[in-house]
């Protein structure tokens, strides 16, 4: 990342090292270089760079990763609060406001 960093100590990402088989899939899918693998085990090397996109959890074949994934979007959170649902950008095809 080009020097842009968001808030520290907020990410819900957790790694269960015991389950990890070192397949490196988390390194492949992570857009922010959060992981490294040493001695066939993944490690979280930059937790505060995590944006909780959920790619690593979904693509971990050993189910070793957990993250409360979602969109880091204030208007989605406001929409969710108004409709008392999960945060949603409300971008079905009828609406024009979307990422």
């Amino acid at each position: 990342m080009t020097g842009l960093r968001y808030l520290n100590n907020v990410s819900t990402l957790r790694l269960d090292t015991a389950r990890c088989n070192g397949c490196r899939m988390c390194i492949v899918v992570c857009p922010h270089g959060v992981f490294a693998v040493t001695q066939r085990k993944a490690r979280i090397i930059d937790l505060d760079a995590c944006m909780e996109c959920g790619a690593c959890e979904l693509n971990c074949p050993e189910d070793a990763l957990r993250v409360k994934a979602g969109v880091g979007c204030a208007s989605a959170i406001i929409q969710g609060a108004i409709r008392s649902t999960e945060p949603s950008c409300g971008c079905d095809s009828k609406e024009s406001s979307c990422c």
Binding site: L4, Y6, A49, G72, A74, A76, C99
Partner: peptide, 12 residues
């Protein structure tokens, strides 16, 4: 934040 490429929902 919704347009950015690095903000997490927990952070927002």
């Amino acid at each position: 934040t919704g347009c950015s490429t690095y903000t997490s929902p927990s952070g927002v």
